[in-house]
């Protein structure tokens, strides 16, 4: 009895095996959409950077440039669809500043820039600026190979001396949206 049952069961199962209701073409729809957060530039400077021989510079500014070569990687160029760059300035100096961020391409030609005004304060003030790059201008990001940060001391207010308190800070990050098909 058991034997016959086993035999019948075996034949039934072997005879009816198949793969049902599956569609392997769906694999073509696979899209990876990673979102990557990366720390970018940062610094902390004291107001004495704007002094020369103990006297405040007229139209004083400081400037620095860095290569950003990850963005000319072909995988990233092809996959990057959107980016948000966030710059957060914290000022505790009783003077106003203007920050200028400039994007340069391989020929060191400026292709994009923006300014941020940071007001004077007797306590501490934080100014945040988010620069959005979407479908229309994402090429700007992928073409960028250098970034320049210029920092201008704006006229007006108490002159800066060795005794001037406070600091200027920058924190920045990028959120990069990739689409890999």
């Amino acid at each position: 009895m058991i034997k016959n049952f086993l035999l019948v069961l075996g034949i039934m199962l072997l005879g009816s095996s198949c793969v049902k209701n599956v569609d392997f073409d769906q694999a073509d729809d696979l899209r990876l959409t990673p979102v990557v957060d990366v720390s970018l530039l940062f610094f902390e400077e004291t107001p004495d950077r704007f002094l020369i021989n103990g006297v405040e510079l007229t139209n004083g500014f400081i400037s620095d440039t860095t290569d950003i070569q990850v963005l000319d990687d072909s995988f990233i160029v092809e996959s990057l669809i959107r980016a948000e760059l966030e710059f957060e300035f914290t000022n505790s100096v009783d003077r106003a500043f203007r920050a200028e961020v400039v994007f340069l391409d391989t020929d060191t030609t400026p292709i994009h820039s923006f300014d941020i005004d940071i007001p004077a304060t007797q306590t501490e003030i934080t100014v945040t600026h988010t620069e959005n790059f979407t479908e229309g201008n994402i090429d700007t990001i992928t073409a960028t190979t250098q970034m320049v940060v210029n920092f201008f001391l704006l006229p007006g207010g108490q002159p800066i001396t060795e005794e001037t308190q406070g600091s200027l800070k920058l924190r920045s990050k990028g959120t990069f949206y990739l689409l890999v098909e």
Binding site: V38, L40, L41, F42, D64, T66, L170, K173
Partner: peptide, 17 residues
């Protein structure tokens, strides 16, 4: 933590980092 800018004093010949 990212790239820390040091704002070299180009005038004094620190050069670019």
């Amino acid at each position: 933590e990212g790239i820390e800018l040091s704002f070299p004093e180009i005038v004094n010949g620190d050069g670019l980092n």
